[in-house]
């Protein structure tokens, strides 16, 4: 790992009402590359992911303690501007939710609210990010049609284009292929592999083979606790912990 981690979670605990979903989790996410977060259903993967762009606090009764450092500064510090955090840390959700507007406006939604979109470069911006999400060829003739008319796989790539358009440094992906067919899933995987060169990708997945294919680092959660974290090579081939070994073998989970 060597250099400083891009995101560092320190002693993070999360409670939904009375129920604790994360228990004192401390883990570092190295800059660039893909870190896969794996673990059985309900172990807190989504919770961990949503704590990193402060989306947790938008959903009802949640209590959070601990720190999440982005480049060394705590994103939960009182003076932090949450919209800036969410601009720097993008999200690709498991089910694509296009915004209720055209394909074109979907891509520009982020740049527009951040005042990054000038009239004369709008078209170029849309094309660039649709190309980056490998969607341009399919939609170039119908940029003004409603985004929800796209297929699910195309919608997911549109959501990726929309996320990339605000130029985040980190991309959080919560089972981004869960709702997709194998071919669409393959395309998303290829895109993520290409993106990891200039951004940090944190990928929650319950597909172990996907994690093996993509991950440079692996984080294993179990019932809200961090069990093991390290380079993919080591965790997959030579896990230190008994539970990791059992989970990878398919004995538990």
């Amino acid at each position: 790992m060597g250099d400083r981690p891009h995101i560092e979670v320190q002693g993070l605990s999360v409670w939904y009402g009375g129920q604790q979903a994360l228990k004192d989790v401390s883990v570092a996410f190295p800059a660039h590359g893909i870190t896969a977060v794996i673990g059985p259903s309900g172990c807190g993967k989504t919770t961990l992911l949503r704590s990193m762009n402060r989306l947790l606090e938008t959903s009802g009764e949640v209590r959070i303690s601990g720190r999440v450092l982005l480049d060394g500064t705590d994103i939960y510090a009182p003076k932090v501007d949450v919209t800036e955090i969410r601009t720097r840390i993008g999200l690709l959700a498991s089910k694509p939710f296009p915004l209720p507007m055209s394909i074109y406006d979907n891509v520009l939604y982020g740049p527009r609210i951040h005042g990054l979109c000038r009239r004369d470069n709008a078209d170029a911006t849309v094309e660039r990010y649709l190309r980056a999400a490998d969607l341009w060829e399919e939609v170039r003739d119908r940029l003004q049609s409603p985004a929800h008319a796209l297929s699910t796989g195309q919608q997911q790539r549109l959501c990726l284009a929309r996320a990339l358009a605000v130029e985040p440094e980190v991309l959080l992906c919560d089972e981004p292929t869960a709702a997709l067919d194998p071919i669409s899933a393959q395309r998303i995987e290829d895109l993520l592999r290409g993106l990891k060169r200039h951004m940090t990708i944190i990928l929650v997945t319950h597909i172990l083979r996907q994690a093996r294919r993509l991950a440079d680092f692996v984080v294993f959660l179990w019932l809200g606790e961090l069990v093991e974290a390290g380079p993919a090579e080591q965790v997959f081939n030579n896990p230190c912990n008994e539970r990791t070994r059992a989970y990878l073998m398919g004995d538990i989970g």
């Binding site: 601009t87 939710f97 939604y109």
Partner: peptide
């Protein structure tokens, strides 16, 4: 409205007001 739709907007750095008025 599904909460995931508002979240999609928040996740792009939109404020509550922007999310309410635009989405």
């Amino acid at each position: 409205i599904p909460s995931a739709l508002s979240e999609a907007s928040y996740a792009l750095g939109a404020t509550r007001f922007e999310t309410a008025t635009r989405i």
